[in-house]
Amino acid sequence: MTLSATAGRLAAEVTTSAAAETHGFLSPTGVEISFVLVGLVTFGAALVTVTTRQLVHAALWLVVTLGGLAVEYLLLTAEFIAWVQVLIYVGSVVVLLLFGLMLTRAPIGRSPDADSGNRWAALTVAVVSAAALVWVVVDAFRTTWIDLDGPAAGATAVTGASLFQNWVLPFEALSVLLLAALVGAIVLSRKTTPGTTADPSTGKAPTAGAPAKPGPAKSRPAAEPESARARTGEVGPAEPEPAEARPAKAGTGEPRPTAPRTDEGGVR
């Protein structure tokens, strides 16, 4: 049991302890009350997340939303799920999100372009999917109530047992899916192409490094742009590399034709 669960239990003891038998909509226990309250907070935070015009605020409200969900799991005694929720979503996904935001654009204050033009369509999709989910859950469980006072139904041992006994196949399928995503990410991030032998760990495009190497000693002004063109021509057009190679060529290859000429002029 955690602190919040303990607090909830303490509150529950004041009213009644037999939640399982005498439950009903009009005799709420402390846990139920807190469940609803936390649910409202979570819902509100979720609304703010999608409506706020400050990007980083949206991410931080997402933290509140996901944390609220974790508290809801806790109230339902699903402790393991709750902490995994915090660990994965709050600790990693939101951090990744914030990282991405900060890396690209994260102005303090409102970003007027944060609004999408098709917000009504998005709202429709959201409402429809929420309705579908609610309908599925309500239809599946109807009046099944979780016994909060008995052995925790969401404890780690119980979750593990059901996961690896009843739900092994979906679990493994998900694992394979994740593995595929992982492999795909690695493949996408590798920059090597058939024509070049670059060290992927350096992360440098080979063409960007190559023109710098010949140096002014052997470079002839006429030959240099030609070789650079040949090298970019080697690479397939669909690869991500040319995009990086071209500015690199523009940066390093462009001034070179002039430099040796002035050098020669100086000698003569």
Partner: peptide
């Protein structure tokens, strides 16, 4: 005492 202690502390 937290049931899923490791997950709790790391999270």
């Amino acid at each position: 005492a937290v049931d899923a202690g490791i997950f709790f502390v790391l999270a």
